[in-house]
């Protein structure tokens, strides 16, 4: 099984420890992982701003970089969602279709492909899980509070495998954090207000750490937490699953 690791651009630049945790976790689980050094980005920043045409070269580069692999694992529901759902502007050649089908968010890869049922890690803290929207409603990594279906959540399932962890209950289980890509800078007032409200929900429930499947949401929440001089930390779910400490 040829597994490629895709580390989203902002994680590469700002949160290398998340990339490292993802890689270590996959290797601990017995995967042989390749990190193609030519990778850049999935192209979402341009496309979400309406500039899909400016993203096409980036899309092509993405497909070229990853076309030879059986799976492309990315610690981001949002990037996986983008490649799977928004690469329609490309001609749907065999490699394009293959890459779109084979790109998987880390949690989906762990549960659907590796089918893991236990982890060798411990995290003795009170943790609030932020359900990132693109993973939750885009990739259906969980049910979502809107829908009338049996409740499930891949991220919860994984966190429950971690020893000593205490998952807190939120009043609003899956409300958006307000990041939204360029929304964060185009509508800063609402974006920050949404983030503050999410944080308040987590802190009310006594979270020491807020985790998520997407570092972008956490970057936004961390920015507010640090401005508030809060002691609450953010950690990507890969770091917790990998057994990193705070």
């Amino acid at each position: 099984m040829e597994i490629a690791l895709f580390i989203p651009c902002y994680v590469d630049q700002f949160y290398p420890q998340v990339g490292i945790a993802t890689l270590e976790l996959l290797e601990k689980l017995g995967c042989r992982v390749t990190y193609p050094a030519a990778q850049t980005c999935c192209g979402q920043p341009m496309a979400n701003s309406g500039c899909e045409q400016d993203a096409v070269q980036t899309y092509r580069h993405f497909v070229k970089t990853f076309e030879g692999f059986d799976y492309i694992v990315v610690p981001s529901g949002s990037c996986a969602y983008h490649v799977r759902h928004h690469y329609d502007v490309l001609e749907q050649t065999e490699p394009v279709q293959r890459v779109r089908e084979k790109v998987l968010d880390l949690s989906a890869f762990l549960l659907n492909v590796l089918e893991i049922s236990k982890l060798d890690s411990s995290f003795p803290h009170r943790v609030g899980l932020h359900q990132s929207c693109h993973g939750l409603r885009g990739l259906r990594l969980g049910t979502g509070s809107e829908r009338n279906m049996e409740e499930e959540s891949k991220l919860n399932q994984l966190l429950e495998m971690v020893e000593d962890i205490e998952l807190i209950e939120l009043q609003r289980a899956d409300e958006c954090c307000g990041f939204g890509g360029t929304f964060a800078v185009a509508e800063p007032a609402i974006s920050v207000k949404m983030g503050k409200d999410r944080i308040a929900d987590h802190t009310r429930a006594g979270a020491e750490v807020i985790t998520a499947g997407d570092m972008s949401c956490l970057m936004h929440l961390e920015g507010i937490l640090r401005r508030q001089k809060s002691a609450v930390k953010v950690m990507h779910i890969a770091e917790i699953l990998n057994g990193n400490s705070i």
């Binding site: 700002f14 290398p16 998340v18 990339g19 800063p188």
Partner: peptide
């Protein structure tokens, strides 16, 4: 910097993941 109105920027690491990987893994 509309990001910075209500939020801090991330703490900037010295090394990107790619740089770390090149140094340590490949």
């Amino acid at each position: 910097n509309t990001w910075g109105k209500g939020r801090e920027l991330p703490e900037i690491p010295k090394q990107s993941f790619k740089e770390w990987y090149t140094k340590n893994k490949s």
